[in-house]
Simulated assay, not measured.
Amino acid sequence: MNKPKRLMPGSKIAIISPSNGLPYLFSDIYELGLQNLQHMMGFEIIEMPTARMSPDELYRNPRWRADDINQCFEDDQIDGIITSIGGYESVRILPYLDTDVIMNNPKFIMGFSDATTFLAYFNMLGMITFYGPSVMAGIAQMQHLPNGYTQHVKSILLEDRYPYAYRPFAEWTNGYKDWSNLDTLGECREFHHNEDGWTFIQGNSTEVGYAWGGCIEVLEFMKSTKYWPSGSFWDDKILFFETSEEKPTPEQVGYMLRNYGMQGIFQQIKGVIFGRAKDYSYEEKQELNQILRSVIGDEFGANTIPIVVDVDFGHTDPKFIIPLGGLLQLSATTGEIVLLESPFS
C-alpha cells in the first residue's frame, strides 16, 4: 500500500467539489467548515477551481472535477485533499483521472458518500484513502458535536499513536439544522444517547483485515465496470458499508449485499462493519440486522465472520475516519474495533 505523508499543523489542504456544487448554494456553512479547518485543525486552505462552482457547471464538466484531483496530486505544495460535500454522480470523473500521477504521488484524500467512487478506486490501485467528514458535513459542525469528536479527527490526522481503538461516541444525530438559517448555522438536529454503542450480530472470533468500502448505494454505481475490484483483491478485507440520506429500505440493502455474495466475496473477507443507518427507525434497524445475518450468513455460508452494526461513520454524526487499506482488528469477543497501524508513512 502507498501511504500518504502524515499531516501536521500548517499542512496545505486543497478543497475540491468532485460531486455537487453545494458551496455555491450554501456558502455560509462552507465558509464555517473552512474556518474550522484553519482554526481548530491548524491547516492552510487552498481552494481548487471546482470548489465553489455551481452545481450545473460541475454536472456538465466531469473532466474539470477530475483535473482538480490530478492537479492536487501533481502539486508538491499540496499536502492533502478534502471534499466540500458529496453528491450523486462522481463516478463520471473516473475516466479522466491520471492514475499514474496519483499513484506516484500518494497524498491524504478524504470524503464520504459520493466520494466513495474515487476513494475506493484509488485504494484498489494501491493507495490508502480516508472515509470521513467533508467540509460542509462533519467539519462545519465541529463546535456542536459531542466531546471527543474533534480529538478523534486530530488523533487520526495529526498524531501517531497506534494501535488506535475506536470508541462509540456518547451521542449521535441524524443530520443538521437548516443551512440557510444563520442563527443556527453549524448546529445539528436532535441528539440521541448512544447507550448501547455498536453491536456484534454475528461471530465469536477476532479477525484482522484491510478496510474497504463506503456508501453501499454508491458502490453499486461501480459494479461491472473496470473500476470495480475482482479476484484476490477481496482476500483478507474487512468491508465497511453505510447508507445515505436517500434511505434505501432494509430489503434493498439485502439486494445489494446479495450481489457481493454472488461474486464469492463473502468467502474471502474477514468481517463486515455496518454504519448507523440514517433515519432508520428501531424496527427498520432490526430488520436490517436480520437481513445482514440472513444474506451473509445463511444464503452464502459466511456464518462465522464478525458482523458489527450501528458503528459511528457515514451519514450520521459524529463520523469516524476509516482509512481504506488501513489494517483493522475486529473482535466479536471483546466488542472492539482497532486500527492496528498508522495509515500514514
Rank of each mutant, 00 (worst) to 15 (best):
F169R: 00
G326I: 00
W179G: 08
T206Y: 07
Y282G: 04
T243G: 14
H144W: 07
F320E: 02
L94C: 00
L32W: 04
Q151A: 11
G42F: 05
S331L: 12
S294W: 11
T199P: 01
C72S: 10
A211R: 01
I273A: 01
S134V: 15
G80H: 13
S11T: 07
Y88N: 15
V91K: 15
W179N: 13
G261S: 09
D310P: 04
T129L: 10
W198C: 08
G132S: 06
D236K: 11
N204V: 08
G87H: 08
E287T: 14
I13F: 09
G326Q: 01
M262Q: 15
P323R: 07
C72A: 10
N147V: 13
M103Q: 08
R258Q: 10
Y121H: 15
E299G: 09
T99P: 12
N194Y: 08
L330A: 04
G271K: 01
I307M: 03
P343M: 04
K177Q: 14
P133K: 10
F241R: 03
F122P: 08
I321Y: 05
Q268A: 08
N104I: 01
I238V: 07
L22D: 12
S281C: 00
D160Y: 00
T316Q: 13
Y227S: 01
P95K: 06
G254R: 01
M124S: 10
G264L: 04
P62K: 04
D68S: 02
W64H: 11
C215R: 09
M127K: 07
R161G: 03
F241Q: 04
T243I: 12
H152D: 03
G148C: 05
D196E: 15
G301D: 05
Y210I: 00
Q252L: 12
M124P: 03
K3Q: 13
V253A: 05
N259R: 15
T50Q: 11
F200E: 02
A170M: 05
T249D: 05
E341Q: 14
V101P: 07
L37K: 01
P106L: 03
T243W: 09
E31N: 15
R63I: 12
M142W: 11
R65N: 01
L257V: 00
G86P: 12
T206V: 09
G261M: 13
P343W: 06
H152F: 03
G231L: 07
N204T: 09
W179F: 11
V253D: 08
D279G: 02
K319G: 09
T150Q: 12
T225L: 01
P62Q: 03
N147P: 08
L58S: 03
K223R: 14
T129I: 08
G10K: 02
M1T: 13
T83I: 10
N289Q: 15
Q267Y: 07
L185M: 15
P23W: 08
G213D: 06
L257K: 02
L145P: 03
